[in-house]
Amino acid sequence: MSSLPNRAKPERSASTSKPTDPESPTLDPTTDVEEPGEDNDADLPITMAASVVLTGLPKDAHEALEGAGDLGMEKGKQLLLPSFIKHPLHVYPGPSAPQLSQRVFKISASKRFETIVKSVRRKLKLKETESVFCYVNSVFAPALDEQIGNLWRCFKTKDELHVTYAVTPAYG
């Protein structure tokens, strides 16, 4: 991951995503799972009480915070991935789950896990009343607000995040 190019921060990753058509069995691994205009980046709002200190920061602290966390590229030492890079994602059907025609997707790191769950729902054409459960590495189901970048960084296998879906709860 350290070999990735050093790029500037993007405007907003959603603008680069294209809609996916569940009807056409495309195998293009670069298809995004995001819907255009969907704005569910993983950053959370904080309260005024906790923000007060932020506005009174000295200049150097301001600069330090800028881009911290998703870039972390000090002097060519890049340790964390920029949040806009699209991560490969491998989706597997779990026990007794219907198959998907497409298995590999790309998703930007700034999105929340929720995006994957929503996308799987859409692709399986589930009704409102039907549920889907998505697991990482067939072990745990992340909270819906967890950031893809974090999950990918911590749980990838050969640079892919493995997500399993099932229509009934699995993996006790």
Binding site: A42, D43, L44, P45, I46, T47, M48, A50, S51, V52, L54, T55, A68, G69, D70, L79, L80, E146, Q147, N150, L151, R153, C154
Partner: peptide, 13 residues
């Protein structure tokens, strides 16, 4: 009128 900031969650190995 200071705006409320945002929170970023960072998790790494």
């Amino acid at each position: 009128a200071p705006a409320a900031g945002h929170l970023k969650v960072v998790q790494a190995l």
